[in-house]
Design a protein around this nucleic acid. Structure first.
Lengths: 196, 196
DNA sequence: GCTAGAGTAGACAGGTCTGTCGAATAGGCG
DNA sequence: CGCCTATTCGACAGACCTGTCTACTCTAGC
């Protein structure tokens, strides 16, 4: 464990990093096992000892992305005080990822569109969707929205749309576009009246 | 040409229909040529005589979808009078497609995520993006918006997000959610002041 | 009836894919 | 030192992929 430096990460870590780069940039079906192990500098047997199949590696890759996204959002949340600032801050956290020239759209949406109907891959993607939706709903409830669920669904559309537009239209400013729209919707939404 | 009835469509038509069903529901890389020709009831040589390669078939499949989408939107537009009703009507046209139980997200976005960097496939998808963006911008300009481009970008986010949410969350009501948000944004947007 | 064009069936070539296996090797720890 | 676990290399099986090719069949129009 805990290598002395970054000189030599474990086979598992190198595989995850290679999978992250290749699967995300080129797609899952397009990238074969051989390219992953070559990019990771790891033997094929190591892959199949660590993960039981290609699907297992793909799931680990997605879970890794999921954890990173949660961390990034959690860190962004600490920068804001009020729930209103926080819910708009989610779009800022999204916008950070758009500035990466490697940005290529939502990894979970892309993986889902390549995965068969009832695969473990889709399960991970669904967990992600539940998380992001609950995140919006929670923050909007805390903001005192009268109808947080409806607004959360609208925010989710802006969130997904921004990711897609940033990638397909090569337009990193989609995050601020989405944020501006969310701000208008939030201002227009009725507040919950305090219980009498 | 023009078969007496629908008894026997041409090889080209049957190939396009099979490609539409299989590529859209399962993905492009996942579905091999053999399955397409089997589903179409057509010989392999017919495919390669009609389209020069698998990529050619994929492009034809996407162009066919593109044409259908334009027709559907054009038909929806005739049902409305004012530009304001028309621009919201785009979301209604989108919602019609969500009711199809086979609905599986935006075909162009999914194809792009599977296609290599500079393929003809991505070119078709880009044409589609330009069309839909111009559609919104044109209708919003006609509505007298002071800043139609910004609003068009926001509407595009809602449009893309609705397609994604309808598919990933199995929620056909995403179209009405998007429409409601668009309506709020439209009401909040300043109008262009008539030239003095 | 005959011919030309379109379609069909199916084998084949040449790759690539995932996953397995045997045997050699390296490194940590007693 | 010797043991043990993890790792490496490379070959291999078996399936599947795209695209080509030959030889056969059907049908419409002259």
């Amino acid at each position: 464990m805990a290598a002395r430096t970054a000189a030599k990460a474990s086979a598992r870590e190198r595989l995850l990093e290679a999978a992250d780069e290749l699967f995300y940039s080129e797609g899952i079906q397009t990238v074969g096992i051989d390219r992953v192990i070559e990019h990771a500098g790891v033997a094929k047997a190591s892959l199949y000892n660590t993960f039981k199949s290609k699907e297992g590696l793909v799931c680990a890759y997605l879970e890794h992305r999921f954890a990173r996204r949660r961390d990034r959002v959690a860190r962004a949340m600490t920068r804001f005080r009020t729930p209103r600032e926080q819910v708009l801050g989610v779009f800022d956290a999204l916008g950070e990822t758009f500035t990466d020239p490697q940005y290529n759209g939502c990894a979970f949406a892309r993986a889902t569109s390549e995965a068969p109907e009832n695969s473990a891959i889709r399960k991970v993607a669904e967990d992600y969707r539940v998380w992001i939706r609950d995140l919006f709903a929670g923050l909007l409830t805390a903001s005192g929205c009268a109808d947080p669920d409806t607004l959360a669904r609208q925010f989710l559309l802006l969130y997904d749309g921004a990711a897609q537009s940033a990638s397909l239209d090569h337009d990193p400013s989609a995050a601020t576009t989405a944020r501006a729209a969310a701000s208008v919707l939030l201002d227009a939404a009725p507040l919950k009246t305090p219980t009498p």
